[in-house]
Amino acid sequence: MPPEAVLLESRAMRDSVMGRTEVLDKVKALVLLPDGVHATTEGVADYFVVHKEAVRKLVQRHRTELNANGLRVLRGSDLQEFQRDNVSLWGRGYPQAKTNLTLYTRRTILNIAMLLRDSEVARAVRTYLLDIEERGRVGVPRQDGNGPTVESLDHRLTHVESSLAGIGPVLRDLAPVIGRISVRLDRLDRRLDATDRVVCAMSLRLSDLAEDVRELRYGPRPLPRPHRHPGSRARRRDQG
């Protein structure tokens, strides 16, 4: 089995097992916010049995990596909306941040477990990860003759949950862009309508101008002769 330090020191090794978020619940029950996706700094500190200041300092040192694995800091309207939704789900007093709120997904918490040195829970998570990695490396089968194991299905479900948690922030960030595109498309539609009206008016004017040019060149069109009844000449001869 590779030494535990490989996860502490190698980001490539951490990235290779980042999808194993089911390990967190196998080591210890993980308490999430009412949305079932995120935890606060206090919740992460309680899970690893460390002071929340230790979690904050680790976040400061590894913010880029943790951001890549789902760490979010809510402020302003995003924070107010998130707190309002969680208050309705919580159903009782909910601790609310005054200016910002740091949120951790399962993937972020697993990332912290591979970085946090002074925590027995984090060490147990790393050991579990290395055991799984070792079994996979030596080719221990993960399925029996009846199909996927419960562990395999649990891992797939957790991976789907983690992917959905990552899609949410992306869609939220895209919403203003989509709104601006929609406004620009509406403006373009109005411009096209105005252009169509101008083109129709120009077409009518060109048609009138073409008729004026023809009259200048060839003279006015002759008026049509009145229609006479065939018997009118005979009556005139008889009268003469």
Rank of each mutant, 00 (worst) to 15 (best):
G43A: 06
G240L: 12
R191A: 09
A194V: 10
G240T: 04
E81Q: 06
S162M: 07
R20P: 01
V199E: 06
T158M: 09
R20V: 04
R225C: 05
A194G: 03
N146T: 15
E211H: 04
S119T: 13
T64N: 08
A234F: 14
R142D: 15
V87D: 00
D144I: 12
M18T: 03
R236Y: 03
R92F: 02
R180M: 14
D193F: 03
E161N: 01
A201N: 07
M13S: 15
G231V: 15
V73Q: 00
P222N: 04
L24C: 10
L157G: 04
V125H: 01
R72I: 04
L216T: 06
A97V: 05
S16E: 05
V50C: 10
E22P: 04
R225A: 04
A68E: 12
R106N: 10
L216W: 08
R56F: 11
S119K: 03
D154M: 02
L79Y: 14
A124L: 08
L79I: 03
Q96G: 06
D25R: 03
Y128I: 07
G147H: 01
R75F: 07
A68V: 02
R135Y: 14
R221L: 09
V125Y: 03
T158S: 11
D85N: 01
V121D: 01
L116V: 07
